[in-house]
Design a protein around this nucleic acid. Sequence first.
DNA 1: GATGAATGAGATTTCATTCAT
DNA 2: GATGAATGAAATCTCATTCAT
Lengths: 188, 188, 188, 188
Amino acid sequence: MSGTTRSRRADAERSLAALLAAAADVFVADGVNAPVRAVAARAGVGVGTIYRHFPTRADLVVAVYRHQVEELAASGAAAAAAAVAPLDDLRRWVHRFTDFLVTKHGLASAVSTDDATSGALHALLVERLVPTCGALLDAAESAGLARPGTDPYQLLRGVGNLCIGAEGDPRYDARRLVDLLLDGLRHP
Amino acid sequence: MSGTTRSRRADAERSLAALLAAAADVFVADGVNAPVRAVAARAGVGVGTIYRHFPTRADLVVAVYRHQVEELAASGAAAAAAAVAPLDDLRRWVHRFTDFLVTKHGLASAVSTDDATSGALHALLVERLVPTCGALLDAAESAGLARPGTDPYQLLRGVGNLCIGAEGDPRYDARRLVDLLLDGLRHP
Amino acid sequence: MSGTTRSRRADAERSLAALLAAAADVFVADGVNAPVRAVAARAGVGVGTIYRHFPTRADLVVAVYRHQVEELAASGAAAAAAAVAPLDDLRRWVHRFTDFLVTKHGLASAVSTDDATSGALHALLVERLVPTCGALLDAAESAGLARPGTDPYQLLRGVGNLCIGAEGDPRYDARRLVDLLLDGLRHP
Amino acid sequence: MSGTTRSRRADAERSLAALLAAAADVFVADGVNAPVRAVAARAGVGVGTIYRHFPTRADLVVAVYRHQVEELAASGAAAAAAAVAPLDDLRRWVHRFTDFLVTKHGLASAVSTDDATSGALHALLVERLVPTCGALLDAAESAGLARPGTDPYQLLRGVGNLCIGAEGDPRYDARRLVDLLLDGLRHP
DNA sequence: GATGAATGAGATTTCATTCAT
DNA sequence: GATGAATGAAATCTCATTCAT
């Protein structure tokens, strides 16, 4: 009995994970605005299956990235707590954020946009990452390494924006520009 | 006869200018992705008229901004030629570029995107502004005021990206981030 | 063993009754067209369980109301047999029918409709209530209190129709209109 | 020039009329809830054409019936103004309303329902017909031929309800029941 | 017996673009 | 040259019903 239950739940979890993986693939390939139907096709399921798990397209998108966002938030918080080399910590964390964004076609723009589609994603990113970014910034400022008065929300959005369209344009190097931005943050 | 011809041509030019003005209004209000019908309605013409002048939506968008892009290119080129205070010239020019972008809902993203819709606009911006930006950068580098090795295309795209979604989010200040980026460009 | 069997059957009956009660609740709240999933959720069972007991949505609907319909049929038949004040009996019975219908969002329309969804319910109502209504009408006609020639099926459908949408519109009073209809039935 | 314009407009009007006729056909056959696509297919046009003329399904439905509703309102108003035989006028007008409704599958229920789909239709019917019905009722009451205190909205809804599902059920005669209701309205 | 995940047809609505007049 | 009616592919979301576990 318990065995049956467990295996069913395991199946469900596995197929849900498969679904999220398929969605992640499609989002990488076609952007986060890819039609739900495309995700369904890729996952080999009907659209209904997706809507069963995620009542709204936005819910699916959020689910796909929540894990990584949480990890990002946690790692940054840990670094801020240690604060051995505050500006380096910030830079390292921002680099991780950058890497996260540039590999997801269309995700970076969700940091900026607040429209119906990506509103939930925007909310997730802001809610989870702004505090972490703020903690890192504070540490750097307290150590006298960064000029004061920078809003972590702005910095996050700036970095997010710099990552837009980075993938697929060999002439554009988002990481380099992000570094430039961080350099500009240093105490003059 | 020649008089008639001239007045007809004048008429045509005037109505075309009116059409572009209407398009500009609509793009400011609803973004560059506004439906063609909205532009037609605003201009008081049929959609067919628009498609006659501009075979594709992209052509219309390009036409709308060509003037301002040309001016921007020219003003930058003039400043680079004079080169009295190279880094300040660059900063001033970038500020003008920033002002141009943030007031056009959705235009900034066209600097990055290369898709079907805004491909032509992207091409225009790159073709006309990269050389100017490059000249200004070169001047600043030659004067030893900016670190060498920055690709003007990248800088332009970076600035463009930072302007995305600036309008309508009071917590985000594109100009401040652009300044940060330029600060980062300074010789260390 | 017999004890076990009996208790199992009792369990089954109890859970089935609970299911019907849940369905009744949902139908009152959201109408008889409420999704099966809503019923399942309310009952705390899976949809499969519902489809096991009731192969079709219509079967569920019928099962939900069968009890009350039977009671209504029986009470009317008793009154017709007694026939002390035939027209009053008819009116009282029709009032009870009216009360039954107006409290069930969307049920009244099933008296009229014969489509796939509510066909079975229609059949139940017609089969069980028309004879009773006929008996009451006959009694009233025999006593010279009602004009002859009224088809009980028609009267039932008329009353049913008058109850449609009664709930939720404070400006509409189904009972008053039903009374008007019955007044029109009186011998001129 | 004027000729061209006129003929184009004439074409447009003709095709719009054809579209409304097709919609009316489909509504008679499948009810007012028939999919827009069905109407498009019947009219031999694309769905876009319909949405161009009627931004919403509801707008289409309203457009289909507006003409007849207006006529009904006008004829009733005229009769109420004359008021030679008030109760007969009311009866005649109600008969016309009845005839209007029973020939349109699913229209009658719109008199009652106020949901998203048929909200606009409900509004049209109430707005245009309640005043007329009220005038006719007043005349009949003033002449001492109808019992006072009947709300025209209620009467209209009652008649509307009685017409629901009249088409296609040979055992049901909406007109007879409407007559019964009107009889009940007479002064006792 | 029970479960609930999966299915997939179908409904509404939007818009770039074409083309007969 | 101008017009705007027509097109139709696409996208999101809903739900009755089936069936493997």
